[in-house]
Write a protein that binds this DNA or RNA. Structure first.
Lengths: 388, 388
DNA sequence: CGAAATATGCTCCGAGCTTTACAAAGTCGG
DNA sequence: CCGACTTTGTAAAGCTCGGAGCATATTTCG
């Protein structure tokens, strides 16, 4: 019955907006004087002063008393965003490992815990391991679940808007798992489940190979092949969460592409199937003939799907990531050549700089985005942080 | 040197924001009383009253004096957005025709002019015809170029951010044409050049088959084959304006797909190549064997590219448009079957409801968006409309 | 030590929104 | 036809907020 679309603003709301404006300015350039903030926001000095003091009493900012000054004139009090007011979690539930990252509101990583997991482990064992990793991460950092403002978990396979893993996933028995419900028993904050490729794309945009780009295609090249898309600066999930799954098209041989490497003639019997690809890359570097053709065939197959993504989206950058990106030196140029042949407008092709960490970092970033949306989207009141 | 990022807001700015809020509310439900606006915006009645009167004196709104009232109580003055304060143009420069639509700020079409053009006409002749269409449209509606607040022109081929047609285009000799510069001699308002497929997608979202969707793949199926993408409610151009050009991939046989229809065995010699497809569709409806297989082969080729788009973007709706959409009855179900086979999550498949007008309507919508952005994005001051 | 420069803190003013109150203009019922 | 009621239009009072200006504090430089 009550109108929700209250678009009009009164004076308190104006104050709120200006407070948000100050917080934003504070986060961009951490230790700021009132005069700097005044210049950056366009507000007058007295207004900024009042608001900044309010932010301090509410726990959003802290003051650095003058100390040693470098310029002439009375040294200014410096305010800084209290990044420690809250924390977020980013968790990568992979086939072989679980990695949890804990960061403050500035995205600075406070602690991380990585456990190895048996690739064959069922959902119960995996969930138990997940709980253990989260517990360890929190206790070792001296935090409790109530200190956490957002949690994002990366899983393999397409994730629908409710957080369910649909279609398929390489995690054994994972298909029906309701991770959201499981996390709700530990955390009362918002929890997001998302596909690992998509989060890796976000990670590379945040702190990796594509910080300057707003239109990115991330290629996950490994034993699995996948993609994550960032369009106009925002991670795109698609209507059903299945965006980027071009590998499902039969004309694109993504499913079988890694077999060029695994079934390469000449791989010694002593090398396990999981390590075969690494052996082939090394052999190719040493000039091994069969290995070179295997790599080229792999890249050729990868490029067809990549070209479909590029032609559809016309991105600025293609990031080559995933387990095979450690051998990007071998594949980047052939990939460029193939794309050049197949595409209309050639994007930049770059190798991942984060490697396997991109997934967990992307999860962290999505948690931060979630918090930002709650703060900047609505009011600044929700989770007040009173303590110093 | 001056700081552009003035995020803070003072009192005048608050008034401005509230004015915009009222304008928006006014546009949603045209004839509104002050009380209604007050309820919808959350502002108090006196505030709304003052703002509304200001909007009237500035020419943004007009008053409807009471008249016959139906309810009890004193009859209310009704305000309405003055859609006639400005006008926009949407123009479709096609191979065979040029169509110009003139609309007011509500998007209501005031006048339209369509001229046929020789498909072989060179750029000079085509530009001259364009000028003639625009002139006719304005003068017949009693407008001058200064009454126009935004112009969008649809052309074939990929358009870069500067409005140049790059790569290729079916319009003879069109490749180097600087349409933006040409329009600047007529109009001082912003002019946008955009690809016709993309605008058709926008048209279908605005007034066509996908008004309820935010994630749309529009298929242009005709003698040319193309696509336009709307992701999260916004038309996506790609970094270089070449988004949706999946037809350039050799594995996707979009370029040759229409030849299944044109080279269908059994087409009489008397039928011109341009009309061959229509003949095949009619024959297929009558049970003509070769025609049916030709249609099926065409749909099969079309579906591969469509599947690549769908798998990449996971849209809610696929709109089947273009010249062939008049025969959607024949192709919609086969297309669904093919997509069902190729895709992970099946989107809805709908036939275009606008037909060939979708392009010009989309151009119109983009012009309106341009105006909206100028109004709602910044201040309400720019093009004041003083006259009653 | 004084001048210059910069930052802080305070007061006053004006703008804008809300609340309250009241007059105006209709309808409805007798 | 008239009075009660309801809703709208309008004016006044009060509150909050940001801007401008000035006095004061603190540091550097000459």
């Amino acid at each position: 019955m009550t109108e929700v679309t209250t678009t009009g603003a009164d004076l308190p709301r104006l104050r709120e907006l200006n407070s948000l404006s100050i917080v934003r300015a504070l986060r961009d350039h951490p230790p700021s004087t009132v005069t700097e903030l005044s210049r950056r926001t366009g507000l007058s000095r007295p207004a900024v002063d009042v608001i900044a003091q309010g932010l301090v009493t509410d726990g959003w900012a802290s003051v650095l008393e003058p100390g040693a000054s470098s310029a002439v004139g009375r040294p200014a009090r410096r305010y800084q965003f209290r990044a420690g007011a809250g924390h977020v979690l980013g968790i990568d539930v992979g086939v072989h490992k679980i990695l949890a990252l804990l960061a403050d509101l500035d995205g600075a990583i406070v602690h991380s815990v990585r456990h190895a997991v048996d690739a064959q482990a069922g959902p119960e064992a995996r969930l138990a391991e997940l709980d253990e990793v989260v517990d360890a991460c929190l206790t070792e950092a001296g935090k409790t679940p109530t200190d956490i403002w957002a949690v994002t978990v990366a899983v393999t396979g397409a994730v629908d808007s409710a957080g369910r893993t649909t279609f398929f996933t390489p995690l054994p028995g994972w298909k029906g798992v309701d991770l959201t419900a499981h996390l709700a028993t530990h955390f009362s904050c918002p929890t997001v489940i998302e596909n690992d490729c998509k989060l890796a794309a976000l990670g590379e945009q945040w702190k990796g190979a594509a910080t300057d780009a707003d239109d990115i295609v991330y290629l996950l090249a490994g034993l699995r092949t996948g993609a994550g898309l960032i369009i106009d600066g925002v991670l795109r999930r698609g209507f059903g969460g299945a965006a980027g799954e071009i590998g499902a098209l039969k004309h694109v041989r993504w499913l079988d592409a890694p077999q060029h490497l695994q079934n390469c003639p000449g791989v010694p019997e002593t090398v396990s199937p999981d390590d075969a690809a690494a052996w082939v890359f090394n052999a190719a570097r040493d000039g091994h003939k069969a290995a070179r053709t295997a790599v080229n065939r792999y890249v050729k197959d990868l490029a067809v799907g990549a070209a479909a993504l590029v032609l559809t989206l016309d991105p600025q950058v293609v990031v080559f990531g995933g387990g095979f990106s450690r051998s990007a030196d071998l594949m980047l140029d052939p990939l460029r050549r193939e794309l050049e042949r197949l595409c209309l407008r050639m994007p930049e092709v770059r190798a991942s700089t984060l490697g396997a960490d991109s997934v967990a970092l992307g999860a962290l970033k999505l948690s931060l985005n979630e918090v930002d949306q709650r703060l900047f989207g609505g009011s600044l009141s929700a989770p007040v942080a009173p303590r110093r």
